[in-house]
């Protein structure tokens, strides 16, 4: 049957920073497929999670699933980190050889009424792993350090978040509006923004 092996990918990171893992990917492998060494290291193959996922799983269906899912099904890791560490953590994840999260896919911002949340979505092309890093931002403080010198495409993403949510990015090279006109008042995707209605 399937070899089950769980590796904590962020073991080293946990030792260095104060992070909390919120979600771990489920990956399924065909029993015929041999893993290469990198995949073995990066793996958490969880048949037990998969059976929890589907209650009606019998042995036969399991076999069927094994033959169908002969590729690694990627999912996403979610980490929650502290705001002060974000630059160090991103730099570490980008440069260290065990992760190689070299690409910042996008930045997601969300107004959760009590606070704001930014998620950095990272992609490791070498190991085919995705990772989302969540940061909470207090509404009174309303600012965070920029990462545009680490990932250069974060420049435009941060300008967009500043435009629509009003979060200030410290040390950003060119922080101004990108979608709305320059003389626009307010930040439209905030929950407390009031849309002018005509009728």
């Amino acid at each position: 049957m399937i070899k089950i092996r769980e590796v904590d990918l962020f073991e080293n990171l946990k030792r260095k920073f104060d992070i909390r893992i919120e979600n771990c990917p489920r990956m399924f492998l065909d029993k015929g497929n041999e893993l290469n060494s990198v995949q073995k290291d990066m793996k958490c193959i969880v048949k037990r999670e998969y059976s929890a996922f589907d209650e009606h799983l019998t042995d036969d269906t399991e076999l069927k699933c094994d033959t169908e899912l002969n590729h690694i099904k990627p999912d996403i890791y979610l980490l929650r980190v502290k705001k002060e560490d974000i630059r160090q953590i991103l730099r570490y994840l980008k440069n260290s050889e065990e992760y190689f999260f070299e690409r910042l896919d996008c930045m997601v911002c969300c107004d959760r009424k009590k606070d704001l949340e930014i998620m950095y979505l990272l992609q490791s092309d070498k190991y085919n792993v995705k990772c989302g890093i969540r940061v909470e931002i207090d509404k009174k403080e309303n600012q965070i350090a920029t990462v545009s010198d680490i990932f250069s495409n974060a420049n435009l993403e941060e300008r967009e978040i500043y435009d629509l949510f009003g979060i200030k990015f410290i040390n950003h090279p060119d922080l101004k509006r990108i979608f709305m006109p320059e003389d626009f008042v307010g930040h439209p995707l905030r929950k407390d923004f009031i849309i002018q209605r005509l009728n």
Binding site: M180, P188, I195, R197, L198
Partner: peptide, 9 residues
């Protein structure tokens, strides 16, 4: 018309 912040009515 009723729900957009960026469109001229």
């Amino acid at each position: 018309r009723n729900s957009s912040y960026s469109v001229v009515k």
